[in-house]
Write a protein that binds this DNA or RNA. Sequence first.
DNA 1: CTCATCAGTTTGACTTTGCAACCGAGTAAG
DNA 2: CTTACTCGGTTGCAAAGTCAAACTGATGAG
Lengths: 168, 168
Amino acid sequence: MRDDLPGRPCSVAAALNLVGEKWALLAVREIAFGNKRFDAIARNTGAPRDRLAARLRALQAAGVVARRQYSEHPPRWEYELTEAGRDLRAVLRALRAWGDKWAVETPPAAFVHSCGHSDLDTALVCRHCGSEVDPGDLRLRVLAPGWTREGPVSGSRQPSDDTGHPAR
Amino acid sequence: MRDDLPGRPCSVAAALNLVGEKWALLAVREIAFGNKRFDAIARNTGAPRDRLAARLRALQAAGVVARRQYSEHPPRWEYELTEAGRDLRAVLRALRAWGDKWAVETPPAAFVHSCGHSDLDTALVCRHCGSEVDPGDLRLRVLAPGWTREGPVSGSRQPSDDTGHPAR
DNA sequence: CTCATCAGTTTGACTTTGCAACCGAGTAAG
DNA sequence: CTTACTCGGTTGCAAAGTCAAACTGATGAG
C-alpha cells in the first residue's frame, strides 16, 4: 500500500504497516477463532468500539479481512479472513509461542494437533535440506539497492539521488 | 508484567503488550542484524529519536534487550538481545514471510540457510508425530477459567465474581 | 578553535486513542 | 402502541502518544 515507509526497506516494516496498529492482530485472532461479529470481537479483545471499527476498515482495505452481510432484514454483517488473513495465523502462532514463554506465567490457551498430543510443539524445518533450522544458521542477504546490513551505503540520500554526482 | 489487559486472557495480547508498540519490533530487528548502537537503530528504522529512546527503555524493562556500556571515556552504550529478545526472531521471521508474500512486490531481503540454498523455505513440523502442521489440523483449547472460544461464559463479570449466585 | 560523533532530551505542533454517549434499523415483550 | 433490547456502528471530547527538528553534553579529530 504505502511505499514511503521510513527506514530500511523491509517486509517486516511493510507487514507492520498493515497489521501493526493496536488491536489489529487481536481482531484477526478473534476472527480466526470464529468470532466474526463486531460485538463479539469488541467484547473479546476489549478494544474500544470506535478503534475497532477503524481497524476493521483498515484491515479490509489491506485485504486481510472481508465484510459480508449475513442477514438482510435485520441488517447484519460479519467479518471473515481472506487468504492473507489466514496466513497471519502463522504470525499469531509465533506471537503466542513467545508470549507463552516470556509474557505470562501459565498459558491461557493451547493448541492441540490432530495427532493427539495435547500441547503443540513444533520445529522449523528447511524444505531443501530437511534439517531443523537453527537461527544461527541463517545469513541475511540484503537485496534492496543502496542498503546493507549495516545501513544505507555511505550516507547517500535514498530518495531520488540520481544526480550522478557522489553524495557528500 | 501487566495482567490487567482488557479482553480475553491471551499470550498474544500479553506479547503485544510488551513488544507491540510502534517501532519496538523494528528496533529488535536492527539489533538482531547486529546494529546495536542508538544512532544506527534510529537511522535504519527511521524512528523518531525520542520514541526510540522510550521504546528501548520499555524493551529493557520487559527483558527483551540489555544496555551495555562498551566505552568508558567517550561514554558509549550498545543494546543487545537477551534470550527473550533472540526468541523474538521467530516472530520477525513470521512477519517477514507474511510481508514478503502480502505487503511488498519483491522481497528487500532474504535469508540464506547454511545448507546452501539461497532462499529460505521452511515447514512447520509437529515434534510428536513428525508430520507437517496444517493450520486446519489445530484445535484451540481455552484454559483460562471463565472463557471459551466464543467469549466470557454467559455474561459473567470476570473480576471477582465469586459470589456464587448466577450472573444476570 | 572548530567540527564531527554518539546518545540521547527538549520543544511545540499534530495525530491517535480511549471513553462514554448516542443513533438507527430491526426484533421482542407487554 | 410503548418500551426495551440487540447489533453495528458514529460522534464529541479530553488525554495520550507521535513527529521533526533543534538542542545538550561529553568526547575526540584536525
